[in-house]
Design a protein around this nucleic acid. Sequence first.
DNA 1: AGGATGATCGTCT
DNA 2: GACGATCATCCTC
Length: 198
Amino acid sequence: MKLVRLQPADLPIETRALAKALLGHVLVRETDEGLTAGTIVETAYLPGDPACHAFSGKTARNATLFGPPLRSYVYQIYGTSYCFNLSSEAEGEGAGVLVRALEPIKGLEIMRERRSTSIERDLCRGPGRLCRALAIDRSLDGIDLSEHPHLWLAEAQEFPMRVRSSRRIGVTRAAERRLRFYAAGNPYVSGPARLNPS
DNA sequence: AGGATGATCGTCT
DNA sequence: GACGATCATCCTC
C-alpha cells in the first residue's frame, strides 16, 4: 500500500464540497511510535450555526478557521477529547470541516495501545477517538496539511465510495440540516444506525 | 476573578 | 438510551 501525498489543488476549498471530497482520502500521522493512518469515512460542518467556533467571530482559539484552507484546526472538548478539523474557504473567512471517523488502515497496533481497546471498529469511530488513535492534540493546531511532515492527507484508497448525508450529531441548532456526510454501508462510521442508512 | 458551556466518551442499565 | 467526567476557552463583572 502506497500513500501518496495529496496536493492542495486536488481538493476544493468550498466547505460543503470539501466535506464530501475528503471521504475516501487518507489521514496520515507519523510519530516516534510509528505511522498510523485511516480512510476518512465521515465528516460534518457547521455553517451559520452558533455551535460553530467561527460563528461569533475570530478569537485566539479559532484563528486557524480564518486562515488559509487545509490547515489543521484542533480543539479540546469536554475536557478529555480533541476534535480535528480542516479549515476551508479563502483566508479571512472562518469555516472548516470536522473529521468524524476513520477506517483504520495502518498502525492498528499503535492505535490499540493509544486507545486502550482491542476492538478495531472502535479505534477511530468518533472525532475524539480518532484524535486519540492518531495522537492529534493542540500542538498540531494551525499546521499546513499540504506541507507538514507528520500530519498529512494521502490519495484515496477506497474508490468509488457512495456518499450519503444526514443531519448532524451532537448539535442542537439548525438540527434539520443535512450537513454530515458519510460512506454508505461502512461499519466504521459513527452515530446511531438510524442516521446511517445505506 | 468567576461562571457557563461544549461538533464527546466510556460506563451502566 | 441515559448520565457524569472534566477543563480550556470565552464572556461578563
